[in-house]
Structures are given as C-alpha cells and as structure tokens.
C-alpha cells in the first residue's frame, strides 16, 4: 500500500484566520411562552448581529410547538445546537456569541499541558550529548 499523500496542513491564524462558524439557524415558536425571549432577541438584536458578522449566514425559521433552539453549522461539517427556552435576550446573545466563536469541535479533555504539532526547538534530551558524569 502506498504511503498516504502528505498535504500542507492549515494552521488557522498563521498567515490568515478563517472564522469557522458558517451558518446560524434560529428556530422559534410563535405561540409558546418559552420562545418569548427568542422572539424579542430576533426582533431587536439579530439584524445588528448579522450586520456585524457578515461571514455568518443567518437564517430565522419557525418551528411550531417546540422550544426555541439555535443551531450553529461549522466548516468542519459538524453542528452545535443550543436550546434557549425561557431565556432573556441578554442570555441568548451570550449563547449566540458562544456558537459564533466555536470551531465546531466536540468537547475534549486535554490531558497534556502542552499540545504541539511541531518539534521542540531544543530537541529531546540525549545522554550521548551531555558532558559525562563525574564521580
């Protein structure tokens, strides 16, 4: 089997930064009370948000008889869904911020303090390259 083809790997933020959130979909229900805050947010703040973030496609669509949710779709093909039932517009703005700034990756526990894909500049310690131990 031939070796897998090597590709130049993206280091997002080096050279340029590509925002990872591509679309935000706002679902609300017109009749239920849990959507009250969401409706207020959509009426008051969402247009401003859409203008400030032209790289995010904003879609507002009703979803009757269901709690309001915000769905973020990302460039890595994944999505994140946040339920915003009974929330005030201020809190919803926080959730929108969260979805907008996320890269769409799943939550992960980082066990090592440093994660790097590049070699250490100092190199790995070698017993052969140190001055011999004097007894």
């Amino acid at each position: 089997m031939p070796a897998p083809m090597a590709h130049p790997v993206l280091k997002n933020g080096v050279g340029t930064f590509i925002p990872q959130c591509r679309r935000l979909v706002f679902h609300y229900c017109e009749r239920s009370g849990s959507s009250r805050g969401m409706i207020e947010y959509v009426k008051k703040d969402l247009i401003e948000f859409a203008k400030e973030h032209p790289h995010v496609e904003v879609i507002v669509t009703p979803r009757p008889s269901k709690h309001p949710v915000i769905r973020g779709l990302y460039l890595n093909g994944k999505d994140k869904v946040v339920c915003v039932r009974n929330m005030e517009p201020k809190d919803i703005a926080g959730k929108v911020q969260l979805l907008k700034e996320s890269a769409g990756n799943r939550m992960k526990v980082f066990k090592k303090p440093v994660i790097s894909t590049t070699e250490s500049v100092r190199g790995i310690w070698s017993p052969f390259h140190t001055t011999p131990h004097q007894i």
Binding site: Y28, E30, I39, V42, K43, L46, I47, A50, K51, P54, E57, V58, I59, V60, T61, P62
Partner: peptide, 14 residues
C-alpha cells in the same frame, strides 16, 4: 408579520 419581515431583511441585509 414583523418576524417574517425580520427574516427577509436579515437575509437581505447580508
């Protein structure tokens, strides 16, 4: 009505 309006303007505003 305002919501539908908002939806349209939002797409349009982009």
């Amino acid at each position: 009505s305002p919501l539908v309006l908002a939806r349209n303007t939002m797409r349009a505003s982009n």
